[in-house]
Design a protein around this nucleic acid. Structure first.
Lengths: 192, 192
DNA sequence: CTACGATTGTGATGTTTGTCAATTTTATTG
DNA sequence: CAATAAAATTGACAAACATCACAATCGTAG
């Protein structure tokens, strides 16, 4: 059952009790997305968060007619435009399913209620924010301290599964380089 | 009085009560830093957070013998290696006073206690984390979507005071470019 | 005021990466 | 399996940026 996976994930964090979980249950809505279907459209305000049971999503931005990927989400991740959700401002991004996917949806309002009613959920929210912050700073540092090749090698090491599920031209823009450049890097690295 | 400025700041957030503030008061330690004095040394674990009453700090990293600035802190900011503090891992950075400064110090342990004891403080921590997260993603985006010139112009618009208090060669590395490149950009922009 | 160090600017040159156009390889569908 | 679309590669060239060496300017202690 779909509920089960979400509950298992929450339990594994050891941050919330079964009681805390029960608060959420009535507000959870399962939903499926076909590959290429949009989860968030640029310009919209994100009211919903999805816990991914199965599948994958990408967040991208369009600039000069070119798509730039900023984020990938997979099983047991929360798919959301966190920025838009937090500030309740229009999203700058599109979020698109890149595989047929199954998610548990819940609204930002319910989450905020949970934060208000339960210290545990508030802590959960803090730790989530701190964790995403750390991922984000790592990314900033990768741009400050490394060149494209080093960023590629680091990503390859840290998230090898990414390369099995996402085409290289999506990864290139995530690394902040052109697909041609990534292709050349890979040849250079393969040749030694 | 130094306490007062910190309390005024906390009140202005409207997130914590006077009672919540009182919890902190016994643990606050005023401290001054001379310009060029270190607040955090690379390799150390950050146990302390400072609220800046007056002055300025910079966070930098040394790579290939070259300093790269990643962060600047000013009045009413918290100066801290947030990453090292959260994860309790050795800092990758140096944090240095760039002006004679006055800060209110408190320990990460006290903060964690506050998080545990008070839902209000926990919420405060969540919102801080969310805010720093948003600043961090903005920075990632600036690297993905913009070139050096655009990053410079954006920074000039968003943080004009930075340019009054920090030399350009520190700003250059913050922007991810060389000081010479920044100098040339400025000439080009000045000439139209 | 002078001298020194800190900061900023400039020129010449090389490297890295982007851009455009085309081609090859790989996957998908009828 | 053939046809077609999607993804990855390649070459030629241009633009952005780094590097090295040095010159100019600014600010401040003596």
């Amino acid at each position: 059952m779909w509920y089960q996976q979400f509950k298992d994930y929450l339990r594994s964090t050891q941050l919330v009790t079964d009681e805390d979980c029960a608060f959420f249950e009535p507000y959870l809505k399962p939903k499926t997305y076909k590959a290429k279907e949009l989860f968030v459209k640029e310009g919209s305000i994100s009211h919903e968060i999805g816990f991914i049971n199965k599948g994958a999503f990408r967040t991208y931005y369009i600039i000069d007619g070119k798509e730039i990927n900023t984020c990938f989400f997979f099983e047991n991740d929360f798919v959301v435009d966190y920025d838009s959700m937090l500030a309740q401002t229009p999203s700058k991004y599109y979020i698109e399913a890149i595989e047929d996917s199954e998610v548990m949806l819940f609204s930002a309002t319910v989450l905020r209620d949970a934060y208000n009613k339960s210290h545990n959920w508030e802590r959960f929210g803090r730790l989530m924010a701190e964790q995403t912050y750390r991922m984000s700073t790592e990314r900033v540092e990768s741009f400050l301290f490394m060149n494209g090749e080093e960023r590629y090698l680091q990503l390859l090491e840290k998230q090898p599964t990414l390369f099995e599920r996402v085409p290289l031209y999506h990864i290139a823009s995530y690394l902040g380089i052109e697909r041609e450049t990534l292709s050349r890097l890979r040849r250079k690295i393969a040749q030694g």
